[in-house]
Computed example of a mutant assay.
Amino acid sequence: MTPICQTFIDHPAAWTARELGSRRALERPFSQAELDALSRLLDQTAGKAPQAVARDDVSQPALVALLGELRETIMRGRGAVLLTGLDPARHGPERLERIYWALGTHLGEAAVQSHAGDRLGRVERDDKDPVARGYRSAGELVMHTDSYEVVGLQCIRSAAHGGQSALVSSLAIHNALLREHPDLLPALYEGYYLAIPEARLGSKPVTDEKIPVFCCVDGQVSCMYAGSFMREAARQKGTPLPGRLAEALEAFSRTAEREDLALRFMLAPGEILLWHNFTNLHSRTEFEDDARHRRLLLRLWLTVPHGRPVAPEFGVRGAAYARVYRERLSSGAA
Rank of each mutant, 00 (worst) to 15 (best):
T2R: 04
P3Y: 10
F8E: 14
I9A: 12
A13V: 00
W15E: 03
W15N: 00
E19H: 13
L20E: 03
L20T: 00
R23S: 14
E27Q: 15
R28E: 12
R28C: 14
P29T: 10
E34H: 07
E34G: 01
A37G: 10
L38T: 05
L42V: 13
L42Y: 09
G47V: 03
A49Y: 07
R55N: 06
V64L: 11
L67Y: 09
L67M: 15
R78L: 14
R78V: 15
L83V: 14
T84K: 07
P88E: 09
E97A: 07
R98I: 05
W101C: 04
A102W: 03
L107T: 10
G108V: 08
V112H: 01
G121L: 13
V123L: 07
E124N: 02
R125G: 03
G134A: 14
S147F: 11
G152L: 00
C155T: 06
I156P: 00
R157G: 08
S158R: 15
S169P: 07
A172G: 05
I173G: 00
A187V: 07
L188G: 04
E190S: 14
E190L: 14
E190Y: 04
A195I: 03
P197F: 05
R200G: 01
G202H: 08
S203Y: 05
K204Q: 15
K210D: 06
C216T: 11
F229K: 00
R231V: 12
A233T: 01
L241K: 03
L241Q: 01
E247Y: 07
A256H: 14
D260P: 02
R264D: 02
R264M: 02
L267M: 14
H276G: 00
T279L: 05
T279D: 02
H282G: 04
E286C: 11
A291P: 05
R299P: 02
L302S: 09
L302F: 13
P309R: 11
A311F: 01
E313C: 01
E313A: 15
G318Y: 03
A319T: 12
Y321M: 06
E327V: 01
R328H: 13
L329K: 13
